[in-house]
Each structure stands twice: as C-alpha cells, then as structure tokens.
Amino acid sequence: MIAMLKYAVLGLVALLMLLPFADMFIGALRGPDDVFATPPNYFPTDPQWNIYARVFDELPMGRWFFNSIVVTTTITALQVATSTMAGYALAKYDFAGRDGVFRLVIGAQMFPFFLFIIPIFFLLRFVPLAGGNGLTEFGGSGLLGTYAALVLPFVVTWYGVFLMRQFFVTVPDDIIEAARLDGASEFLIFRAVVLPQVGPALWTLTLFAFVYHWNEFIWTMTITRSAPELQTLPVGIFLLEDQFNTLDQKSLQQAALAVSVAPVMILFLLVQKQFHAASGAGTR
C-alpha cells in the first residue's frame, strides 16, 4: 500500500515534469485548422510535420544553430583547458602564493553574475584598437560586435577550477615524481601522465560547461541584441518574439523551441551517468 503510494507520487511528479514538454511538441504540430477552430483543437487533427522544415526556411535557424555550436564548443574547450591547468597547479605543486590563489578561486564564486554585466559590457566596448576604437579614443564599438565578446568573459569557470583541483588531489604523487625522474617536461607530465587519471571528471566538466553555455541567455542577449548575425538559438528565438504574435505563428515558435531544446536533451539522455556523478559533488 505504502509502496503504491510512493510510486503514485513519483509518477505524478514525473508527469508534471514531462507534460510541459509534451505540450510544446503537440503545439508545434497544430495547423491553422486547429488553431482557428472554435474552440481550438488541443490535439492536432492533421499533424504538420513539415513545421520542422519550415522553422529552418522561415527563421534564421541555421545561423543560430551555427552560432550556438561555435560559441558553446569554443567556451567548453577553453574552460576545460583552463580548469585542468589551474586545478592541477593548485593540487600538485607546492609554491608560495598557492593558498592565496586557492582563496581567490573560492572567493570569486561568491560574486553573482548580475554584478558583472554592466562593467564587462563596457570593458569590452572600450578595448583599444578594436572595432573602431583608437589607442586613447573610444568612439567605436570595441569587441561588442564579435564572437570574442560572447566567449572571453567565460574563459575561466571558478567552479570548474575548484572541481578539477578536488579530483587532481586524489592522483598519487608517485607517478608524477617517477615521470619527473625520467626527465619528462612538466607539461608532458600534466598531459600524458596526470590528465588520463581524471578522465571521468573531465567528461563531467565538459558536459556541464556544454549544457550551461548552450543554454546561456542573459549575456548573449545583452551582447547580440544589435548584432543578429551573432545570436544563438535561445536568444534568436527570444528576440524574434514579435514575429510570433499571430495565432498561427505560435506553432512555429513551439517548433523552434523544440529544436533549441533537442540537442542538449539528447546529449543528456545519452550520457546522464556522468551528469549525475557530478551533481552530488558539491556536498560530499
């Protein structure tokens, strides 16, 4: 009896989680006949599967997709590189200033993102000799109209550095010493000896960074509001809001959203083990 109740609760919550997504996929397939019927049909009478071709024809979907992939993979690659390098230095070297840097990594995580939006926006705009700026004269747009503006503020993830440091600490010192005695360079030791030891952690970091930046919204919107050629999927769909005002355009919007959601959702379902390995890492 209690067991049944338990699964009833889990089932109900699962339904509440899935129903909104189902609503989106169903809505995308409604045609004009369904939308303009009185009352409108909930389930499409004649599912419009070609909607998924139409979103690519009628919206700059290809451009957004391309931008999402370029920006997300670039940021992910850079974050993995900087997190592993810094995490390794903090875990496996003994040097004056190490504790200070570690405190910086912990402390930096305390600042919420909204504090940085205004100052970083203008720092990028005032980069000398970029986007029409002179060496001392800043009438241009700096880096604002470029991919760099989307990528640079995310080159380092403080949490990622912390996470990798925690994993590197568990790598035995002996194998590092042995490689050093064999005359390997410090970078070779890092790349060929130590990195392979933390493979699962690397995947976890990669996945988290990828999903986070595929979905990133506020910063990208702030930068690309006036640069449509740089917009990513979520931002492009959001800023085209006005185009979806008529009733029969709603299904187009829902289909576009479905396309924006699908890649990470599929990725997540394929590799969810790595995801969940990390989700408890903050508390244990």
Binding site: M17, N215, F217, P234, F238, V264, M265, F268, H276, S279
Partner: peptide, 14 residues
C-alpha cells in the same frame, strides 16, 4: 532521475 532533471538541461527561453 532523468525525468526530474530534464528542466535543468533546457534553455530558459524554452
């Protein structure tokens, strides 16, 4: 677990 975590991997505009 996958079902309950689904919103977390979805972009906020969606």
């Amino acid at each position: 677990r996958s079902i309950f975590y689904l919103p977390q991997v979805t972009n906020i505009v969606a």
